[in-house]
Amino acid sequence: MRIALLGATGYIGRSLLYEAQSRVFTVVPYTRDKKKAEDVFKKYSIHLNSTLHTYNDLSTEKYDVIINAAGIGSQSQLAKKTQDITFVTESLDSILLNYLETNPHTRVFTMSSGVVHSLEKQTANSDDEPLIKNTYALAKEASEARHRTYKEYAIIDLRIFTFFSRFVDVNDTFLLSQIVGSLENNDEFVTNPNDIVRDIITTEDLLDTILFLTNTAPANAAHDIVSKGTVTKFELLNYFKDKWNLSYTIAGDEQESPTGQKDSYYPSSNTLKEMGYNPKFTSLEGVHKEITERLRVA
């Protein structure tokens, strides 16, 4: 099976690239900027088994599967580049749909987000600042709606609620990014007293989901990505405290996510289970596997 991976330098992209290469799949990475991509792969010690391509090269190649992990995956970038969200999403959709016109049997998997379930309407008052969470959700919702109109193509949107891998950027503002950053810098992690619930998917289960779906009948659909079990913030913190000697204190507020405050953020349905797929890891088990690998390498 020959796989094209778009957005190979992003958080999810580089994680999938490493995982797929470790399983000896032929994975061809795609990016906007080769020089920046080479710097990212060097930073995370990811060695390529295939030639790095730009998106303009896609139309000249043949693939069984295309994974679209491109987008603005960093919360810090998301906060700075709100206006780019829709452009990035639409431009990649255009590239993929053009490709499918001449390669209609290729399976396409696009990384979407659980935020589409909690879409809030933008205020009608033009004087108000647009909410980033709504802009992001609207872009994802529009992309999914666009895909559903092309029933003749096997396009599947995978809605990820929370993702974690050993390739996390500790300078980002995700909860786990901040926890890992505090751990590696030997800093005390400061949090507020409010507990939250997350469903965290890690790379192995995400790739397994894609491989499972490639072995089912071609379909045009969206699925929530579900781990084997959710985890709370304080379960995570106590795990890092007991296992990795993280020091944390309860005081003040964390920085709010650009996609909105979500106390309980996990799937309410599991269509993949109905199809026969079962994930390998609970949220905490997946985090343990990934952080163990990160700290082992460090």
Rank of each mutant, 00 (worst) to 15 (best):
L5G: 04
G13C: 07
L17N: 02
E19W: 09
E19A: 11
Q21F: 10
T26Q: 14
V28Q: 01
I46A: 11
H47N: 15
H53S: 11
H53N: 14
L58W: 11
E61H: 15
K62S: 14
I66F: 06
A69T: 07
S76C: 15
K80S: 14
K80V: 08
K81M: 07
I85L: 09
T89H: 11
T89M: 06
E90S: 11
L92T: 08
S94Q: 14
P104F: 14
P104A: 10
R107M: 10
R107I: 01
F109P: 00
S118N: 12
L119C: 04
E120H: 06
E120R: 09
A124Q: 10
E129F: 01
L131R: 08
L131E: 08
L138R: 02
L138N: 01
K140T: 03
S143D: 04
R148Y: 12
Y150G: 04
I156T: 10
D157H: 07
F163I: 05
F163R: 00
F163S: 04
R166C: 08
Q178W: 00
G181V: 01
L183C: 02
E188S: 06
V190S: 14
P193Y: 07
T202K: 09
L206D: 03
L211K: 03
A217G: 06
I225S: 07
V226K: 07
F234K: 02
F234I: 00
Y239W: 15
Y239S: 10
K241N: 13
T249S: 15
G252T: 11
N270L: 04
M275D: 12
P279M: 06
F281Y: 15
S283E: 02
L284C: 04
E285Q: 14
G286H: 02
V287D: 05
K289Q: 12
E293A: 15
L295W: 05
V297T: 14
